[in-house]
Write a protein that binds this DNA or RNA. Structure first.
Lengths: 199, 199
DNA sequence: CTTAGATTTAACCAGATGGTTAAACTTTTT
DNA sequence: AAAAAGTTTAACCATCTGGTTAAATCTAAG
């Protein structure tokens, strides 16, 4: 654990690591303290409870689950190009935060944290749908169900990171080849999207 | 809890419910005993430990994560039709077992159960790839990366069930409309697959 | 320098947890 | 019917867990 950062920050970094690795139920306050290199009582001094600490970590990480769509979708460009940019951005983001999807999905699926769903900055569906309708009217894209399209797009981006251990086994891959696969996947998904969208 | 079934079966049913609902770390042996309507000591009498009980449940459920692909892929039909059958079968299966994906993915991603990956009956990738090559040679399908295709196919089938709470919020849906969306999704995915595969 | 406020420490706490034990009870076998 | 085997129970156990407490230590302010 590095010098020069506050105890609060040490705790947040350690908590993030442990919560992501072990999940909420599997995480121990003593483990977080050990990783942070501090006395366990400080966790309560600074954050009051395990719940609140988790919430703080979740709040910090959640902003990354849905990348800022404004920059992409407010541009005056073709819908399909917006989707390309989205794919590039999202897969890059997931490559840097490969454990994020499972962390978020576990949280929103857990029964005592389902209200955390309200914390998700979900503008994606609206932005995509509006942008899609614009291009549909101009005959630039095929008619399809925007909701289903968004689900598919997200599924194709996110799923491999969730299923990484399975895919490593399935394709006799290691971390290096998996990452290359994810790199290649950007182009692959663009191809699919083009085939699906072009009228 | 029903009459006429053995204590062992009672425990397995209850354990399945609780492990799926709360995850391994979040599950308590007393909870499982309560759901089963038995004394907690019986869990150890019949299954020796929480670990072993979990493994038994996992073994039972895992067979369903990858549906039997033999029936579908051994048929002498077009590759694309095989994929259609796969989609129908898999989405139906997931609609009946909506919590299964998260259960499995959590298990294979957890650090002390990663060896469970070996229990997955993974013939899917090989079957799909072989079948795809056959049709490729006959010019029935477009050239693409089979691994990426499989990942996408599975992602589009599985992801919505993992992200259900998010999607409910995102699309202002409830359980009924979500299920209808999953029903409709079969046709939608077939459309995508057709567009992607046709030469 | 002293005081006040902030931070940290080590010990402690009540309840929870997976698991154990021995006795009681039930079913099967002889 | 009695004995043996199998099942169940209630109590118990050592350890773990999130959290608390009061004293010690550190830092900032006057």
């Amino acid at each position: 654990m590095e010098e020069g950062i506050s105890t609060e920050e040490k705790i947040l970094k350690a908590a993030e690591e442990v919560f992501i690795r072990d999940g909420y139920d599997g995480s121990r306050m003593q483990d977080i303290a050990d990783v942070a290199g501090i006395n366990k009582a400080l966790l309560h001094y600074y954050f009051r409870s395990k719940d609140k600490l988790f919430e703080k970590v979740f709040d910090a990480k959640i902003q990354g689950f849905f990348p800022q769509v404004d920059e992409v979708f407010n541009q005056d460009i073709l819908f399909i190009d917006k989707i390309y940019f989205f794919i590039e951005g999202y897969i890059e983001l997931l490559r840097k935060n490969p454990y994020l999807p499972l962390f978020v999905l576990n949280t929103v699926n857990s029964k005592d944290k389902s209200e955390f769903i309200k914390k998700l900055p979900i503008q994606l569906s609206r932005k995509v749908a509006e942008s899609y309708q614009t291009d549909l009217k101009k005959g630039r894209v095929r008619m399809l169900n925007p909701a289903q399209f968004i689900i598919s797009l997200m599924g194709m981006c996110i799923f491999p990171f969730l299923a990484k251990p399975i895919l490593l086994d399935m394709f006799q891959a290691d971390n290096v080849t998996f990452d290359a696969l994810m790199q290649d996947r950007i182009q692959e998904l663009k191809t699919y999207i083009k085939l699906i969208l072009q009228p």
